[in-house]
Design a protein around this nucleic acid. Structure first.
Lengths: 250, 250
DNA sequence: CGACCCGTTCGCCATCGAGAAACATATAGT
DNA sequence: ACTATATGTTTCTCGATGGCGAACGGGTCG
């Protein structure tokens, strides 16, 4: 039965998604045609969203409002992992000069929750809140490695194993093998599986929170994947991870 | 007429707010009694919110989902100010050792959009997305100083001038006087007007974006408000602000 | 084992969300 | 200057649906 959902809420959310599709900003007619609904419907929904701060009106154009950020903040911080990890990410970024990331698993997705940029950090899009396939990033694989096999199956069923680049693992068999190895070594590697030319070294976090998490360092293959730096990045990850885990259990 | 709003959407949003009220986490019955609506209603709304990622179910408890963070990210970044300011905030934090903040005005509120912590940064709550009265913070006053008088009147009408601490400006007269001074000097001070014991030095940002913004350094009165450091913080703010403005107009 | 408490399901009804079309207002074209 | 066209706003109508209350079923605690 589809009767345990509220359609009006769903369309309101579709409005927000529509705004994103239309480069984050749209007028009423524009959004109405994009979503194939009546103008008056869009009008009422945007009005409602605006009065709660989830949308913002500027002239005749609408955008997503900062209120969403407030809600997001609660999602981000409720278990303390974010707050604890944040200074460590910064330290990681400083020590390596690269890009440090924190990811949570939620709803079968990997969600980038925070990033910290070192001096030479690459400029790739790790916008806070962005979702990524768990099997296609070092962070995601690190997370998957901590989950029971059935859970991983579930996630595969839900999201599939699409190829994000030509190096992405797309075979369940291969994925499970790698997860075993990650579980054994405690470190996950990603060599251009997520972004062409980029590599990523990740480490799962073992926290009291029920929300799976991982941290990583990302950079160009040329820098991150060479034996020497790889070694030092691993220790940076290890230390930062230990500190985070200690702070959370202590 | 109240007919140009969507009630179902409003109640969905009330559910999210309710979750916050209940310490970020609640069961269905709990939330139903808190909001004084039928259990089945809460059930349907949370179900809907969950399937879009705005809520997350863990066992029988619901929380706000990280999807909100994704939406918030778009609100944060659409005009480029956030991305441009971020590295400068970090620099400000490093150079002063204190807490650096970025605030936007939206919907007559001041919204904390990013913070960067220096070595000695105080641990106060500047959670991303948090809203604050514009008249009661250095950041807010810096923003108000850039707005036309009518706009400031509007904001006062909408949000009032409540006393946040005993030092908060609560008289329109006094506020406008200070805004004039801020406008003349380009710097806004806040001495315990927002948080007891804390001072804040802020500077408005003049950007191509129609969204008013300001940056600041916050710290204990004892450190921030003494002549010498105050001086150096001012120059740090000035420089960072210039760089941001230059990057955005260039 | 029974009394509760919770999430879930069911069925009902007045409400209200959604659409279509008319209206108002601004901008562009000739 | 005056259409023509686009947009946001309003109105109206109708069927769907949101919200309720009550019943169900599965835990848990005494």
């Amino acid at each position: 039965m589809d009767d345990d959902r509220v359609r009006a809420t769903e369309t309101s959310i579709r409005m927000l998604e529509g705004l994103i599709d239309l480069d984050g900003e749209a007028g009423i007619t524009e959004l109405a045609t994009h979503l194939s609904v009546a103008k008056s419907t869009v009008y009422k929904h945007l009005n409602t969203l605006e009065s709660s701060g989830l949308a913002v009106k500027h002239g005749d154009r609408y955008r997503i409002g900062l209120r969403a950020l407030e809600f997001g903040g609660y999602a981000q911080r409720y278990d303390g992992v974010y707050d604890t990890a944040r200074p460590q990410l910064r330290k990681m970024a400083d020590e390596t000069g690269e890009l440090a990331n924190l990811m949570f698993e939620e709803d079968d997705w990997g969600v980038y929750v925070h990033t910290s940029r070192g001096e030479n950090a690459v400029e790739i899009d790790t916008q806070t809140g962005r979702r990524a396939y768990l099997h296609a990033t070092g962070l995601g694989k690190a997370i998957l490695a901590t989950l029971p096999e059935e859970r991983v199956e579930e996630i595969i069923d839900a999201r599939g194993l699409p190829a994000v680049t030509e190096h992405t693992i797309t075979e369940p068999r291969a994925l499970f093998e790698e997860l075993d190895e990650i579980d054994a070594t405690g470190i996950a590697y990603d060599r251009e599986e997520c972004v062409e030319g980029m590599a990523c070294i990740a480490r799962p976090l073992s926290t009291p929170s029920e929300r799976p998490a991982a941290i990583s360092i990302t950079g160009p293959v040329s820098r991150v994947s060479t034996g020497e730096t790889e070694e030092s990045i691993r220790t940076v990850l290890e230390q930062a991870g230990n500190v985070i885990e200690l702070n959370l259990t202590g």
